[in-house]
Design a protein around this nucleic acid. Sequence first.
DNA 1: ACTAGGTATCGACATCTGTCAATGTATCAG
DNA 2: CTGATACATTGACAGATGTCGATACCTAGT
Lengths: 115, 115
Amino acid sequence: MPAAKTKKLPPSEGGLCCGSLTETPLADGEANELARVLGALADPVRLRLLSLVASQVEVCSCDLEVPLSRSQPTISHHTKVLVEAGLLVGEKRGRWMWWRVEPDRLAAIRKALGG
Amino acid sequence: MPAAKTKKLPPSEGGLCCGSLTETPLADGEANELARVLGALADPVRLRLLSLVASQVEVCSCDLEVPLSRSQPTISHHTKVLVEAGLLVGEKRGRWMWWRVEPDRLAAIRKALGG
DNA sequence: ACTAGGTATCGACATCTGTCAATGTATCAG
DNA sequence: CTGATACATTGACAGATGTCGATACCTAGT
């Protein structure tokens, strides 16, 4: 998107309010926000990461490298993207980062998609 | 995705079966397929295109350029992406292409997302 | 047949994205 | 303090993506 300025909003700024796609034409801002979050989901590795975390309530980064077959920096990159989209939450305990999913956020996306 | 081979499967090949993200860890193939479809949705112009068509049942390409502020080739590109994702269906009548959305496909995505 | 209008395709371009090696930072064990 | 461990950040690179102008393809009218 040569013209658009994503700007990497903080996780809090997760509008995603209002009605669904199928009801009324999406406003420009709503479309941008929804596209941003869907973009975070539109990657096989991130989808599998998310489902791995969801299936175990909490997972640390170190346990993701092997099942996802990606290097440590790449895992770190993907968790960051998911956090910025509001889909993942991390908590540092000792040396480990523990991740869990944000089910409300997924629900909001489903709703925006016509749920 | 340097390694992955999207391959641009025909619209029919739209698996997207099985359970949701949040239940069991996504298999590799399922993750690829879901990411492919979500990628088609992860664009503000395509989201607005889809919602424009949905709000009017049927729309021809010529009526999309102005509201979406994009050139005719760009509109054509986006409709193609949405068709390949199984989200849009087109029918040529005379000189015009008439588009409508595939609600079942959207529903399948919501379900895959934990609906 | 010729022309005009609606779409699709092609080529080019700038930007975005996923990936890893190298390096930096924080925390724990001894 | 020292070394090891878990994670984040940086830099670089190849490949994907969104965009448009130019052009080709189809269909309808004349």
